[in-house]
Simulated assay, not measured.
Amino acid sequence: MALIQAGHGAVAISSQLSVERAGITLAAFTRGRWLAFIPIQIVSMKRLQMSPDKMIRMANQIATFFKTQPGDDAPAKVAAHITDFWEPRMRAQLRDYAAASGEGLDDIVLKAVPLV
């Protein structure tokens, strides 16, 4: 899979569906029964890394939500949410940050990290 910039949004597209012609990368996509090609720009994967402050804020917001839910399994629910909705590099960044210091992360997040 490759992340591409098409119009105003970034979308994932199979690398088997993209072709390069005359220096322009075209991505194939289907809309109903139609097959279309659109010009795209490959986006650097480095852009996907979050700033530590944003990562901490996002993880802590998830923990805050699950603290309000019944039961005492908030770390497991936080881990499940992060596993389901965070991209693998984002999860790796969180694991690395928690192992290094974990400064600023909610206790629920710190308990959830080993489960991610």
Rank of each mutant, 00 (worst) to 15 (best):
A2E: 09
A2H: 08
I4D: 00
Q5K: 03
Q5P: 00
A6G: 05
A6W: 12
A6Y: 13
G7C: 00
G7I: 03
G9I: 13
G9F: 13
G9S: 14
G9E: 15
V11F: 15
V11Q: 06
I13M: 11
S14K: 12
S14A: 14
S15E: 15
Q16R: 07
Q16D: 14
L17Y: 12
L17V: 02
L17K: 02
L17H: 12
L17E: 14
S18R: 09
V19E: 13
V19R: 09
R21L: 13
A22N: 10
A22L: 08
G23D: 11
T25W: 11
L26T: 06
A28I: 06
F29Q: 01
F29G: 04
T30W: 07
G32N: 08
R33V: 13
A36P: 00
A36N: 04
F37Y: 07
F37I: 00
I38P: 06
I38H: 06
I38Q: 01
P39G: 05
P39C: 05
I40A: 02
I40V: 15
I40Y: 06
Q41A: 13
Q41G: 03
I42D: 03
I42M: 09
S44Q: 09
M45T: 14
K46Y: 00
K46H: 11
K46P: 01
K46V: 11
R47I: 00
Q49S: 13
Q49C: 05
Q49T: 09
Q49E: 13
M50Q: 12
M50C: 07
S51D: 14
P52A: 04
P52N: 12
D53A: 13
D53G: 05
K54Y: 14
M55T: 02
R57V: 11
M58H: 10
A59C: 15
Q61V: 01
Q61P: 06
T64Y: 04
T64I: 12
F65T: 04
F65G: 00
F65K: 10
K67D: 14
T68S: 10
Q69M: 13
P70Y: 11
P70E: 12
D73Q: 10
D73K: 03
A74C: 02
A74R: 01
A74W: 10
P75V: 10
V78P: 04
A79Y: 08
A80N: 12
A80Y: 12
A80Q: 14
H81Q: 07
D84C: 00
F85W: 09
F85A: 02
F85S: 08
W86M: 04
E87H: 06
E87F: 01
E87M: 09
P88M: 11
P88D: 05
R89N: 11
M90V: 05
R91S: 06
R91G: 02
A92G: 03
L94Y: 08
R95V: 15
R95G: 01
R95Q: 15
R95K: 14
R95D: 04
A98E: 12
A99M: 14
A100V: 12
A100F: 13
S101Y: 01
G102Q: 10
G102I: 07
G102P: 09
G102K: 10
E103L: 06
G104S: 08
D106H: 08
D106N: 03
V109T: 04
L110Y: 09
V113A: 03
V113K: 00
P114Q: 07
P114I: 11
L115F: 10
V116I: 15
V116P: 06
